[in-house]
């Protein structure tokens, strides 16, 4: 049996999630006494193939397929590789690009798909642990099939490290250009304003709990009183209440301040990915079950509209 994990790269770099996929693949291969194969499609396959040669990897497949990810190309390449290797479990990343091709791969291969795994186990069936309702609860999903496609949440497995003894093999995929219906024409960095939240020592960060745009002054006043920089979680930026360069999280900035004060932020996984590296995390949220309290060092379970003005007053 074989477990196959497909790495991810972008603009000349293998992305961190790749080594996490190798680690998830290793756990699964170990549990099922399977071989572990890793693949990379496109980009600098020579360099990436070398990098992915981690301990316990049996084979690294490199597929020449253009410089950047294109889902139509990846779907065809991975499908052909799966036909050749016949993995029991195909692991893909639950990233933006993973979401852009994993469902099509599963559909093409007619294999069941379970996305956004935070844990994997094998008994008789493959059991995937995933989160529901914005991380409020966890669920286990059993796959009643002998083949499956699973996408893995970034940041859940510690990355594989070191050099292994895998054989690195080039795999020739035949790309049917008539099936390529999309073209990547470029990339664009989010416009940045005059504030760099990644430079701040203290961030006062505001989320959905603030309810109305008018209420932002409450946290602005606090940030001013503390000499801190104001940042935000996604909904605030989506609403246009603060510019995109203030957004902390997976699609925004990754910040590592000395103190991160999360106000009315539930702590969705995409947000946490951007701020878990802060030295001290303080959360103010009225929901005692909010996932932000799982990573906070200090917390106040109370209404922010009571606590924030009182805190501001302490510093005036």
């Amino acid at each position: 049996m074989t477990v196959l994990a497909v790495a991810e790269h972008r603009r000349g770099e293998l992305r961190d999630v790749s080594d996490q996929l190798v680690a998830a693949g290793y756990d699964l291969a170990d549990e099922t006494d399977s071989e572990l194969h890793v693949a990379v499609v496109g980009g600098d396959t020579a360099e990436y193939g070398d990098r992915l040669n981690r301990p316990s990897v049996d084979v690294v497949h490199t597929v020449e397929a253009g410089a950047e990810f294109n889902h139509d190309v990846s779907v065809q390449a991975v499908e052909q590789l799966v036909d050749a290797v016949d993995p029991t479990v195909l692991l893909l990343p639950h990233t933006v690009n993973g979401m852009d091709y994993a469902p099509a791969v599963a559909s093409q291969l007619d294999r069941p798909l379970v996305t956004d795994a935070v844990d994997l186990a094998v008994d008789d069936d493959l059991t995937v642990t995933r989160e529901l309702y914005g991380s409020k609860v966890e669920t286990t999903v059993d796959v009643h099939a002998d083949r499956a496609v699973v996408t893995v949440r970034p940041g859940e497995w510690p990355p594989a490290d070191g050099n292994g003894e895998a054989s690195v093999e080039a795999f020739d995929a035949t790309i049917d250009e008539s099936q390529v219906r999309s073209t990547v024409t470029g990339f664009e960095e989010a416009v940045s304003g005059d504030v760099d939240i990644t430079d701040a020592d203290v961030l006062v960060s505001v989320g959905r709990g603030i309810e109305e745009e008018e209420n932002l002054d409450l946290v602005r006043d606090l940030a001013d009183a503390l000499g801190a920089t104001l940042s935000a979680s996604r909904p605030i930026v989506d609403n246009g209440w603060l510019p995109a360069d203030r957004q902390v999280g997976q699609s925004g900035k990754v910040v590592t301040p000395d103190v991160y004060l999360a106000i009315g932020i539930s702590g969705a996984v995409q947000h946490v990915a951007g701020m878990k590296g802060a030295d001290t995390i303080v959360a103010i949220n009225k929901d005692p079950n909010a996932p932000i309290f799982d990573i906070a060092d200090y917390g106040i379970v109370d209404d922010l509209f009571d606590v924030v003005p009182a805190l501001t007053e302490e510093f005036q």
């Binding site: 933006v96 690009n97 852009d100 999309s182 960095e189 989010a190 997976q250 900035k253």
Partner: peptide, 14 residues
């Protein structure tokens, strides 16, 4: 397409 880390991919889709 909104990729991670504040980068957009620009694409044409038929």
């Amino acid at each position: 397409r909104e990729l991670e880390g504040g980068v957009d991919e620009i694409s044409d889709v038929e």
